[in-house]
Nucleic acid binder design. Structure first.
Lengths: 224, 224
DNA sequence: TCAAAAGTGTTAGATTTACACCCATGA
DNA sequence: TCATGGGTGTAAATCTAACACTTTTGA
């Protein structure tokens, strides 16, 4: 096809911002880059888009390769395409973010890949434009959290209201009033109380809740 | 670099969603595709990303080529990368939207490119995934309009409050209360009244306003 | 003189925020 | 027994939404 062939082809990669929540902090998975150029620099985990896969599939595959997890909540952040963003060759990269429950990530697999959870408020300088990718991913994620109950993806199936509140506080970077927060949760209707009690966080014990997907889809008047 | 060369390269293009506002309607520039595959189908205007330009530059160049206009408000919509999205070859496309004042677009240039303004509420089926691109662009644009005064980019330098209101109504797809709308505009402070009167829209005449960029940057408490 | 768009305030209702104390338990 | 986190309601303030009439002027 001569119409196409008069133009240049480029490499396209995906870079993944994996969000986790631990110790009341929002975290991101980063590791030391193991190839040149940029060997040894802090970096997001990424990979190239193959000829026979969509960009979404490439991102899903990459995250799955890193974490062993599937069916994650993932969204595209956008394309990053400065000419010299990759010091080696021209590579356009498409960033994606994923939300995972830190506890679901097998420690062994994490160490094998040489990545670690880093507090999003205290990130080092990363390779290329990765800091920018994370900033944009966080912005989009925060926005999403305001309009859809995606936060549960960062928590275990069962969680306490305090955990949930800390999560919202970490994402939005501001403290919330406990009573107002719980009032809104009650109004939502799709966060259901279980009979179970969590005694790990306090002496008295806190009720465990779970997200009721069905209730959400029946009555999606989310707000937070 | 063997690390790169073991991976496939692909073509990367940009597709541009050019928004305009006319006759109280939000419009998009589309034209009949003039090359195979898909010749004759309705399509967005696009182009390939060259080896020596960033993706943002490619989008800017493409829009400028089409409209002759520079310094437009442009934002990336996202990357579209289904394997078979282009029926000819594997092409990943990055969509951008731009806001222009319809009156600034030279009619001759428009005809030369064979594009026309189509009401966004009544778009035909477009080539490939272009309808999806437009949907996403509109969603992002609407969101942006809620938090930043970008609407002025779709209007002449001088405009009446009725025009501005119609613009907001067209973008959001719902009618607004005239008094509430004007109240909010007054509160904003960076939409300044001029001494000029527009007599084209009514017998009585309406005051013309302009956007005061300086006032906005000093006090950006935008809401709408 | 009348049709057509411009312009202008008030009030009720809804939403949001601020705020303080008792409870249960393990150490 | 006391320190720690869990759990609960109300009132003031703010924001939002609903609403109708007068003005100007060209045709």
């Amino acid at each position: 096809m001569t119409y196409y062939s008069q133009h240049a082809k480029v490499w396209v990669s995906v870079d993944c911002i994996i969000f986790g929540f631990d110790e009341s902090k929002l975290k991101v998975l980063i590791g030391r880059r193991q190839m040149d150029p940029g060997r040894g620099e802090w970096s997001l985990y990424g990979g190239f888009v193959a000829a026979d896969e969509s960009i979404d599939d490439a991102a899903t595959r990459t995250v799955s390769e890193l974490t062993g997890l599937n069916n994650l909540y993932m969204r595209q952040v956008g394309a990053f395409g400065r000419i010299d963003r990759d010091p080696g060759e021209r590579v356009i990269s498409i960033a994606y973010y994923a939300l995972i429950n830190v506890k679901d990530y097998d420690e062994r697999l994490r160490l094998d890949h040489g990545v670690e959870w880093m507090n999003i408020e205290a990130l080092p300088k990363l390779y290329s434009d990765h800091n920018e990718m994370i900033r944009k991913a966080r912005k989009l994620m925060r926005q999403k959290l305001r309009t859809e109950p995606v936060g549960f993806r960062l928590l275990p199936d069962l969680f306490t209201l305090t955990q949930l509140q800390k999560l919202y506080e970490a994402v939005n970077g501001e403290e919330l009033d406990k009573r107002n927060f719980r009032k809104r949760i009650k109004e939502m209707g799709y966060i259901e109380k279980t009979e179970l009690i969590d005694k790990t966080g306090s002496k008295r014990g806190a009720c465990l809740y779970r997200f009721n997907k069905r209730a959400y889809h029946e009555d999606p008047n989310f707000k937070l």
